[in-house]
Amino acid sequence: MSMVIAALGFWIAMWALNRRLANGAGANTRFIQLLVPAIFGLTILVVWELLVRGLEVPLVILPAPSQVMAKFFSEIPTLWLDFQQTFLKGALSGYVMGCGAAFLMAVLVDRYDFLKRGLLPVGNFVAALPIVGTAPILVMWFGFDWQSKAAVVVVMVFFPMLVNTVAGLQETTSMQRDLMRTYGAGYWPSLTKLRLPAAMPFIFNGLKISTTLALIGAIVAEFFGSPTMGMGFRISTSVGQLALDMVWAEIVVAALAGSAFYGVVAMAEKRLTFWHPSQRK
């Protein structure tokens, strides 16, 4: 019981601290802006730990963060294997193929007005559909290994990427297009020198949305069949064995992979679209 009270006390103390920091003088400094969410995250972890211990929650319901971390470090070889299978082979290859294909398609669609008017409504429609549902079909077609996972990822990222890129390619103002006409510039110069650079923020938006979709697709596809490794496989089998510490360790890997993937794309965006108002400092 004392641990539950300690958890409550810790929560109140940390929240008071955050309130002071957030409303204090230095609230706009970068340090405080990082510190406050960090304190909040830490508070959640500590409260979680104390509650699990204090209430003696069984492992099969909720492991404490310390147990998850212990599992994480003791199972690093397995986790690394799963990461390779699901992220590097399944998600990443599918991401590259899907986004690449969607990009080329978008350039094509943009060139022909008929395609644009036909494909965009269809693309917008498909982008809202539960595409993970294609996973069982693609697993049957491409087998249990990573190829089927990559295929699911391709299907999942294709339409969001397509819709974003096409929208970006239309982002030029009539003045910018007139300028190109005064130079007598043809299709290719205006594509490479005007429309593609102008589309960059939109393209990156599509790429960023797709990072999460890629990981979801690769993991969920494994629920429909996989070799005896992979993050989705491990999650579903560990759940079956009630080894929840392993499930949580796998979730930690997924969270790290997901945010790192997103972070890398966001960093590339910062470098390439430094000129956009949203990125200027």
């Binding site: 099969v60 319901i61 909720l62 993970v132 990072t211 999460t212 990981l215 979801i216 993991i219 969920v220 629920f223 993050m231 989705g232 999650i235 579903s236 759940v239 079956g240 009630l242 929840l244 499930v247 796998e250 979730i251 997924a254 969270a255 997901g258 945010s259 993937f261 997103y262 972070g263």
Partner: peptide
């Protein structure tokens, strides 16, 4: 940015138990 969907099976099983 995190594939939250991955924890779906766990929530089902835990709540089940």
């Amino acid at each position: 940015t995190i594939p939250i969907l991955a924890i779906a099976p766990m929530i089902i099983v835990v709540l089940n138990s």
